[in-house]
Write a protein that binds this DNA or RNA. Structure first.
Lengths: 213, 213
DNA sequence: GTCTATAGGTTGATAGAC
DNA sequence: GTCTATCAACCTATAGAC
């Protein structure tokens, strides 16, 4: 669901008049329509209607249709910073992988949707790409983070040191990505008979544990 | 690129008059526009123009815009049957993984694009989902195939038998999926600094090889 | 099967009052 | 900031001749 702009500054009085919520209502409505009908069938008319505002108001806040879609994308991407691996600091290998996969799947569940929606329009796709690259928010971020964590485990002798830690990290990240993508693109229940997140964590833990241990 | 309808039956005379190629030209043009501008900005007008035919002709062949898009999707999915694992029968573990990843990435390079395009419209998304499920063409097919192959390797003692073969298969498949998806969704060069296909094959081979060997 | 011409219906966007 | 009214552009789809 879209993030309300700055609930953090509620206590302090703001400059100008208080927001009546129209802007946010539009964002929420756009998100819903995007999810229900897809980007191609999202019309400013329907979004305004659902938000309970006029179309004129919509265009006042978001310059044009493209601006609205861009805003939805930007909003869907916020919170990527929360995708840390640090949480499972002193944990076991299995704990690290469990935390990582949970975090990644959680993030993707919220953001992958807008990433896919952006693909329906060349301009939006470009906007998304620029944003992901310039903000250093692409998948390589999570992969490198986990890779570094695994490398530390290798130095400590807790993880097999004869494998590329980044490759292993990519494998784990990818499994999360694939699972979420299939759920979104095919159906919520698709792939229920395939190995789940826990199975993947277990398998990777076993594989990465040194033979000696 | 779209598949020309049945080059196989060219030698034999067909019923009705010979095709003049208009139908295929439209399919090719639609594919191009889809790739360049995205599904939301694909208009029947532009497709007809690029194909060098009239709009009337386009609607004659493909009932409506949705029918055209559906045809493109169906076409983009053909050839999935070619995604076999059998090719690398008697090969080494590394050979099996190399062949599998090559095949999967090759297939996804052709088909993932239309799968993503279908997400821009609720109807198309449904069409795609139905097709993938009813034709048993979803990702689970490739995953199960590789899983079975790995399980045979386990029975032969060539692969660690203390891990879930399907989970390992899913990890490998997912890596291919993620790599192709990022290339398509962000940019062709994105992720060039991340582990490549070979690195993944190498890592997984090492991980799956029994400690004894 | 293909073309031309055109109808019919949306849609994104603006202007101006409040 | 929000609304109403309105438009111009565009796009899908059809009709009918060839």
């Amino acid at each position: 669901m879209p993030t309300m702009t700055d609930p953090s500054d509620a206590p302090r009085a703001r400059r100008g008049r208080p927001q009546s919520g129209g802007r946010e209502a539009v964002l929420v409505a756009a998100w819903e329509v995007l999810k229900e009908k897809g980007a191609a069938r999202l019309t400013t008319r329907e979004v305004a209607e659902r938000a309970g505002v006029s179309e004129g108001s919509l265009f006042y806040h978001y310059r044009d249709r493209s601006g609205l879609l861009t805003a939805v994308i930007e909003d869907g991407l916020t919170g990527v910073g929360a995708a840390r691996t640090g949480e499972a600091e002193g944990a076991t290998l299995e704990g690290v992988l469990d935390g990582f996969t949970r975090t990644v799947e959680g993030f993707l569940d919220r953001s992958l949707f807008v990433m896919i929606a952006a693909q329906s329009d060349a301009d939006l796709r470009q906007t998304l790409a620029d944003r992901l690259i310039s903000s250093d928010m692409g998948p390589h971020r999570g992969i490198r983070a986990l890779g570094a964590r695994l490398r530390r485990g290798q130095e400590e002798g807790l993880i097999r040191s004869d494998v590329d830690a980044d490759a292993a990290a990519l494998l784990v990240y990818s499994a999360c990505f694939e699972r979420v993508a299939q759920r979104h693109m095919i159906s919520e229940s698709y792939g229920a008979d395939l190995p789940g997140r826990e199975d993947i964590v277990t398998a990777m833990s076993t594989l990465l544990t040194p033979p000696s241990a």
